[in-house]
Design a binder for these strands. Structure first.
Lengths: 232, 232
DNA sequence: TGTCAATTGTCAGCGACTGTCACTAGCCTC
DNA sequence: GAGGCTAGTGACAGTCGCTGACAATTGACA
């Protein structure tokens, strides 16, 4: 059992995350000041910066939680299965428990709405892209480990992960730009996009398009799955 | 002919860019203050922020120049040829004139060294990724226009451009992490990476790897070209 | 040459972030 | 259960990026 000191720290940290998310969602990221966040939790600004190295960090704290959980789940996965399938099934199977982990800190709706804020705030888009890059690197290392490959010699892990994470980003972007920002809509968007990844790469898509046949398999990577609304 | 006022503006702008690049390269981006930059050019800080909306913007001013020139060159390109080939040949043919455009503002070595700063400064990496995304969107629109396609219906322009720009980024990263940061080394790295793009996508790469055959064509996208030193 | 408009400098101020130091409150020992 | 130890907090002063407002300057043009 953890001590009182520890629990107190966790509480203030969670409170800061929750307050920050509420304010960001309510009035936007740029227009929310750190002073407003700490006022809502009633701690000093100095304390805020002891928990988070920047205002950006608190905005991505839940995203980071999700990334870490997912990465950990992939690491725990028993050997076997193709890498794409490992990533896909890990995603599907951990979705629920990761959702619960979020709920312990803030209502999941807040997390969902925060995605919209990120995707519409230029400075956050930039940071998000960098995080994705870092996440890709770690995932690629794990895939390489599982397959017994050397990341320096074999580019396939990185490529696989890049494709996977590209599809994830496309799904999130499509979902966050749409009408229904519910959890189930997100899950559906992500799962249907990801489900296309394997088939799209193995099937032959050159069914009479104007494009040369060598780009079509890759093209399917960002194709909208049927029934998904176009979001621009 | 442009008036004196106009020329004076151009001079101070170029001087700011040059001074900023010199300082960034010499002592790092974060540790260089805007006050140092304006002191080197002897203008007020307010003037700096009239030319550049942020410290980041001046750091990317030469990169932006290059992007714009390249995009413009693609736009000027007569119809015909496959999209990949159009991008590749435009790159090769405009390399020289773009270099000259840079030289009018700052020594090209400074531009080259600035890449290293960008690639090793987290906040600049993030901004760079966002710029790449924006550039991809514009290039994709142009490719779609050339091919008479609708970007909303056909994902292939975006995919093609994403692949192209991914290869470019990989090339730059490999080059900037290496020993030889000369212009010719950069050119060689970029051109050899890009040259692989077409063949890599059309060839069959499944020559007895452990991976499923459906990822190998994509895998070749980030493969190191022969003779290029590994840079991590 | 005098008027107009564009450009610049000065100043005051906000917001993100950091170093420092005194203080408070869990924790651990006797 | 008292007292020392230390992790965590608050208060304060200061730096740096960036902005608005207004006055001073300087090229443009009649």
């Amino acid at each position: 059992m953890t001590g009182l000191r520890e629990r107190k720290k966790q509480r203030t940290r969670d409170a800061l995350v929750r307050a920050a998310h509420e304010l960001f969602v309510e009035q936007g990221y740029e227009t929310t000041t750190v002073d407003e966040i700490v006022a809502a939790v009633d701690v000093s600004q100095r304390t805020f910066f002891r928990y988070f190295s920047s205002k950006e960090e608190v905005a991505f704290s839940l995203q980071r939680l999700v990334s870490e959980r997912f990465l950990e789940a992939v690491r725990q996965r028993p050997p076997g299965g193709s890498p794409v399938e490992v990533l896909r099934s890990t995603l599907v199977e951990t979705w629920g428990s990761i959702g619960e982990a979020i709920e312990e800190i803030a209502p999941i709706q807040l997390y969902m709405r925060m995605w919209q804020i990120i995707e519409t705030t230029p400075s956050l888009i930039a940071v998000h892209l960098r995080h994705s890059m870092e996440m890709e690197e770690q995932l690629a290392a794990e895939v390489a480990r599982r397959e017994g490959l050397d990341l320096d010699d074999d580019p396939r892990p990185r490529v696989l992960v890049a494709a996977f994470s590209g599809v994830m980003r496309a799904a999130i972007r499509s979902w966050s730009g749409g009408e229904d920002i519910s959890v189930s809509a997100a899950r559906q968007a992500v799962e249907s996009y990801v489900a296309q990844l394997g088939p799209a790469l193995s099937q032959d898509w050159s069914t009479g398009g104007t494009s040369p046949s060598h780009v079509v398999s890759a093209a399917a990577l960002t194709a909208r799955p049927p029934g998904t609304p176009s979001s621009n």
